[in-house]
Amino acid sequence: MQLDLTGRRALVTGGGSGIGAAIARALGARGADVAVHYANSKDGAEAVAGELIGAGRRAIAIGGDLTDPAQASAVVAAAAAHLGGIDIVVNNAGHLVGRATVAEMSDEHWASVLSVNVSSSFYVTRAAVPYLAESAAGRVVLMSSLAGENGGGAGSVAYATAKAAVVGFARGLAKELAADKITVNALAPGFIEDTAFHNTFTPTAAQQNIVAGLPLQRPGTVDDVAGAVLYLASDLSSFVTGQVIDINGGANFR
């Protein structure tokens, strides 16, 4: 059995930069055709799609606000129309939004964090289920976080809550979609360097302290996350569903 995705059709949300871009490139390198979604990173998404087209893949960049159910459905429909269906959905889109303690947190902040991390995945996956059900190898990959397991850093209660909810969504959905032979799994990255997330919200000194405390003594990379997606998207994981894969250099153990 090989990690060959030739002919598979994938939608990667938040694919214009960072982890999402690495995932889209990795899927394309293994033969998949890829729809690269973006919210704000239009130039990046178009560049990734262009690279994939240059390598002989079918690819397209599609913009949309996934916190809006109508736009999320439109993104999925556009991806399916361009690729001729969907076999793989990678719900990578998400955001810390900002740090706030519970005492100072506004209703709007709470709702925004839950919406961009949880509701967006629900809207996209719901719209994609009919296409996945027609696939011989339907795959859903959701993006949780180490924060969903350990509560995250200061001011990230809303984010930690959202990422824990993603795990519950993955496990419940795995049971629901099993009859259609669709697997559903989640990833929980820890510290992944050179991403907008940590460059924005984690000071350099804090990043260095995190890495110093890891058993593997190195930061994670976007390719570390992309590699796990390749496994979950391929036939190698056909008997794996409802699971969470930690990608954190040994920061914690289940």
Rank of each mutant, 00 (worst) to 15 (best):
206 A>V: 15
252 N>F: 15
6 T>H: 12
72 A>Q: 07
2 Q>R: 14
195 T>E: 01
234 S>L: 07
231 Y>H: 03
106 S>I: 08
172 G>Q: 08
75 V>N: 10
22 A>M: 04
164 A>I: 08
185 N>L: 04
95 H>N: 15
79 A>R: 06
25 R>Y: 08
40 N>L: 14
127 A>K: 06
50 G>C: 03
53 I>R: 15
114 L>P: 01
2 Q>C: 05
219 P>G: 04
62 I>T: 06
207 Q>E: 09
233 A>P: 07
131 Y>S: 11
54 G>D: 11
172 G>I: 07
217 Q>M: 08
235 D>V: 13
36 V>S: 06
217 Q>L: 12
133 A>L: 08
1 M>C: 06
22 A>G: 05
82 H>Q: 14
160 A>G: 10
56 G>T: 12
201 F>D: 07
10 A>F: 08
142 L>S: 10
102 V>F: 14
67 T>E: 05
51 E>M: 06
47 A>F: 03
212 A>P: 06
103 A>D: 15
121 S>G: 12
167 V>N: 09
79 A>V: 03
205 A>C: 04
32 A>F: 08
48 V>K: 03
153 G>E: 14
165 A>P: 13
250 G>Y: 01
161 T>C: 11
179 A>W: 11
216 L>V: 14
239 F>Y: 15
116 V>L: 03
164 A>K: 10
205 A>N: 10
243 Q>C: 05
40 N>M: 12
39 A>P: 02
229 V>G: 00
95 H>Y: 13
205 A>M: 05
227 G>R: 09
185 N>I: 09
249 G>R: 00
107 D>E: 15
192 I>P: 01
245 I>H: 00
95 H>C: 11
31 G>E: 08
55 A>L: 15
48 V>I: 14
244 V>A: 00
223 D>T: 13
235 D>F: 10
30 R>M: 14
177 L>N: 06
221 T>P: 08
190 G>I: 00
51 E>I: 03
169 F>E: 02
13 T>L: 06
248 N>F: 00
146 L>M: 14
46 E>C: 06
132 L>T: 12
36 V>P: 00
100 A>H: 14
198 H>S: 14
169 F>V: 07
227 G>I: 02
246 D>Y: 05
242 G>N: 09
244 V>N: 00
17 S>W: 12
131 Y>R: 09
22 A>N: 03
73 S>Q: 15
24 A>K: 04
98 G>E: 15
79 A>E: 05
38 Y>V: 07
12 V>F: 10
228 A>N: 01
211 V>R: 02
9 R>M: 10
103 A>L: 15
228 A>C: 07
216 L>Q: 14
135 S>W: 10
98 G>K: 15
209 N>E: 15
178 A>N: 08
200 T>K: 15
33 D>F: 05
124 V>S: 10
41 S>T: 12
209 N>G: 13
181 K>W: 11
16 G>V: 03
16 G>L: 11
238 S>D: 13
73 S>F: 02
43 D>P: 01
83 L>D: 01
227 G>D: 07
66 L>Q: 11
113 V>K: 09
168 G>Y: 10
150 N>M: 10
78 A>W: 07
84 G>C: 05
7 G>C: 08
207 Q>S: 10
138 G>S: 12
6 T>Q: 13
86 I>K: 06
3 L>N: 12
144 S>E: 10
